[in-house]
Write a protein that binds this DNA or RNA. Structure first.
Lengths: 343, 343
DNA sequence: ACTGGATCTGTAACCGGTCACAGCCGGATG
DNA sequence: CATCCGGCTGTGACCGGTTACAGATCCAGT
């Protein structure tokens, strides 16, 4: 970087002190109000600050306090997967908002290439950030163990299998969400209910399927393996799964898809197959992503409250930074009724 | 597991110096390699760094150098608009990547509420960030004038009307993109070509429409006001515009929509109206967002190379930081042929 | 042998904050 | 009148880097 700097010097705390006729320590005291300052001095300082347009240098402050006031939002998976996922944007927005509310700075980091991962590890474990927010990390990722070893406060979105005791996490109540979706179908009189699952090596994929099981069992409906097809969250995988279901279990009268994207793929296949939705086949999705309202027909779905999740992640992280022991929490889901499976 | 162990102190540059048996100035020299150090000393330092696991404290470094090594990515518009736009995610990804490549830190800032805007202004104009990347700012936004006054290096995505001389910007070649889309339709023998525009107070909206004009004029096709309908980039607005077009200019044989989302809305309306795409009506979109490949039929569209744009934004910003005068550049678009208007 | 430059290295002064500590002051107390 | 105390304030030592400058070393040139 070329240090070609014409910038006029910004006022420092000593400039303000001189302007206000007090010492710089007093200015500092006024700034972060931890100690008592006489009303006169405080007013003088405040005036001087307004007059000079002073703002504290965050780097100097971080250096002195050892706290950076910034949080890293870390993406470990190949980034395109995350960025293309509309859910990810919603989460990021929520996190940005929650951090902004707490006057914390959000640093976005990508760790996909090996060099990036090395830099990221060094940066984060160097204690240069107060905490880390992690998006659906893969349990086997070596980044995890290194961050844990470096004792960086971490909160993950989604349970991190194997690290429950040491990494806090926030996740939706996927199991009950799945259960409520399927119970809604049962309540509508459907019994030949198929499901399209998410990947079974993710907590969300497993739990949503478990919810499907729960609902069927508690209502005495037998579970048919032919009515279970696996997908990878994507629309295409949902379409493929739907085709398999139609051939293996053609008598199905409802489908619970573990993501809206897969549900959308399923809707398309059903339409092509001439099945009426919701007449012949009811369809319920999961996430209530932006997609859900615009499919044909609009999708009944389980709302994954990512804004709440984001909020809780930040709350939890500040707690962990303050010394609280790691903790995993779930936030409740709600069923959103639309035309693909009306009330 | 007692988590509140006082964190063992991280090694500083002096620890490394002691370990390597040199002075801390020498360590610093090795670190940023600007001056000459004897090979022996350099090796000793490098070994010591590896042994201690030292990483430089970025705050101390920023304080000493006056450079922060971080760039703000600033969202000024109500954030939901931007986050819901898939294009935005792509741009963010590209920027994150480009900054990461240059070992710059990406700070994501939202300035929607008045308090946030005030904090943001203070933070950015305080010189605590080396530069700012701005997403499609509204020309009238007071943030702009304040940032300009504070002499913060800025690069915007999209021309900023009224600030061309002082804010660098990068944008796609919307005009020629629009032109190429319409020329593609003309080449296919269509002449009753309608268009659904973007907002006319955005540079992109204006320029894409201008491209439509250019193509028609240069091929001697008269411009019918009834064939021009305005949208706001969204799918719903595209559907509404399409309905208006069908009633005002029912003989249309092609539609150029200024965004893929609007094109998608138009496709739906055309389908409902029983018009075959591309047989009766050819449709071309703009952006080549993730959407385009999955519409029915898949959408011919003008590729808006957001990854290139992101890259150029970062390149331009580092130039501006280095003292180069502001500059606006455009990056070329390309037509992507799919089924909605085949070759 | 003496000077001089080239090359390397160490000391010390900063960057702009925070905070422990000592000091000041006026009034109440012994 | 000396003492103490509580509220307020200033001094100076940090935080962990960068960098100007001076000093040391070695070798070539005279």
């Amino acid at each position: 970087m070329i240090p070609n700097v014409p910038t006029r010097k910004r006022p420092t705390i000593r400039d303000v002190a001189r302007e206000a006729g007090v010492s710089y320590a007093t200015v500092s005291r006024v700034l972060n109000g931890r100690e008592w300052v006489s009303p006169d001095a405080a007013r003088a300082v405040r005036d001087a600050i307004a007059r000079t347009g002073y703002t504290a240098n965050p780097h100097a402050r971080s250096l002195a306090t050892g706290k950076s006031g910034s949080i890293a939002f870390l993406l470990t998976e190949p980034q395109h997967l995350l960025f293309d996922d509309p859910n990810f944007s919603v989460l990021l927005r929520g996190v940005a908002q929650a951090l902004s509310d707490r006057e914390l700075t959000l640093i976005l980091m990508i760790a996909s290439t090996p060099e990036e991962r090395a830099r990221t590890i060094a940066y984060l474990s160097g204690g240069h950030v107060d905490g880390v927010l992690l998006v659906s990390p893969h349990s086997g990722d070596p980044l995890l163990s290194q961050l844990v070893r470096a004792e960086v406060p971490i909160v993950a979105c989604g349970r991190v299998l194997g690290y429950e005791q040491v990494i806090s996490s926030v996740m939706a109540d996927d199991r009950n969400g799945g259960r409520s979706a399927v119970e809604h179908l049962i309540a509508a009189g459907r019994t030949r209910i198929a499901t399209i699952t998410g990947p079974q090596d993710t907590a969300g994929g497993v739990d949503r399927l478990q919810g499907y099981h729960d609902a069927l069992i508690s209502h005495g409906v037998t579970i048919e393996p032919a009515r279970i097809a696996h997908g990878d969250w994507s629309r295409d995988s949902g379409a493929a799964a739907m085709r398999r279901l139609l051939s293996l279990a053609p008598d199905l009268d409802a489908v619970f898809a573990a993501s809206d994207a897969m549900a959308d793929g399923a809707l398309r296949v059903l339409r092509e197959a001439g099945r009426d939705v919701p007449g012949d086949v009811r369809v319920v999705g999961f996430d209530d992503s932006g997609l859900a309202a615009t499919t044909e027909p609009p999708l009944t779905t389980v709302r994954h409250p990512l804004d709440r999740v984001a909020d809780e992640m930040v709350r939890l992280l500040t707690d962990v930074i303050a010394g609280r022991t790691p903790l995993s929490i779930t936030v409740p889901t709600t069923l959103v009724i639309r035309a693909s499976s009306p009330a």
